[in-house]
Design a protein around this nucleic acid. Structure first.
Lengths: 117, 117
DNA sequence: TCCATATTTCCAGAAATATTGAAATATGGA
DNA sequence: TCCATATTTCAATATTTCTGGAAATATGGA
């Protein structure tokens, strides 16, 4: 992954409405959610939400698929994964044990969180 | 972690110089690097870099410790971890197997990356 | 104390981003 | 075709962020 792509993804997430959308879709999982419902759920005008969804989509973090009159958005877990990998790549000069890496982060856990830092 | 804190962290990383600093410090590991060397390495004026380091620091992603005349900056891996956890929390309505989660992302691997998405 | 080095703070102009009303486009059904 | 619904695009304004010169602060040594 090139740095420009990573910046796009991080910028996309660095805004309240978009971060909320992303997390909402993470919780939703593969089934996704239509644009209109998303806008309604987060109390944001449809056109504003459309702009936000376009940014997340362009960044490779979500995908939209038209189904009838609606467009169903869902998280692109692969894209998200690439970003996380990019951030932590080659840590500690090749000695990841120095920062306690291994299988930290991205637990994607049901409700309760493990190992609160 | 509250959403405001996550936005701070993501905003901090969503800028070229800061993302480069962060990755540089990730590679460095716990030994860190003085502010001046960082500025020099990335070819950015010292005062501009200072502003960037302050933002990363405020976001809980790096820490600065004064040593003599220098201030040594290093990554706060705990802070980074909190952000990643926040992003993927409660995915797929409690069925993380639906998105292939488990121990993905944040590999922090030496040079080669696993499972290129 | 005085000086050199290292870093940060202050400030202001330039650039990028967010927001939304209005208009345009896409789809399905009568 | 005409209409209602769903979403996106356009355009303009408001807000935030980035950047670096100049000045201030901090530290160590003579």
């Amino acid at each position: 992954m090139e740095i420009e792509k990573a910046i796009d993804a991080l910028s996309a997430l660095a805004q309240r409405s978009r971060l909320e959308v992303f997390r909402l879709l993470v919780r939703r999982g593969p089934q996704g959610m239509p644009a209109g419902e998303i806008a309604e759920a987060l109390v944001v005008p449809a056109n504003t939400m459309s702009a936000h969804l376009a940014i997340l989509s362009q960044a490779g973090l979500v995908r939209g698929e038209r189904r009838g009159r609606s467009v169903i958005y869902s998280v692109d877990f692969g894209g998200m994964n690439e970003v996380m990998t990019f951030l932590m790549k080659d840590c500690c000069q090749g000695h990841p044990e120095l920062c306690g890496a291994g299988r930290q982060a991205a637990d994607c856990a049901p409700a309760r969180q493990k190992r609160r830092a």
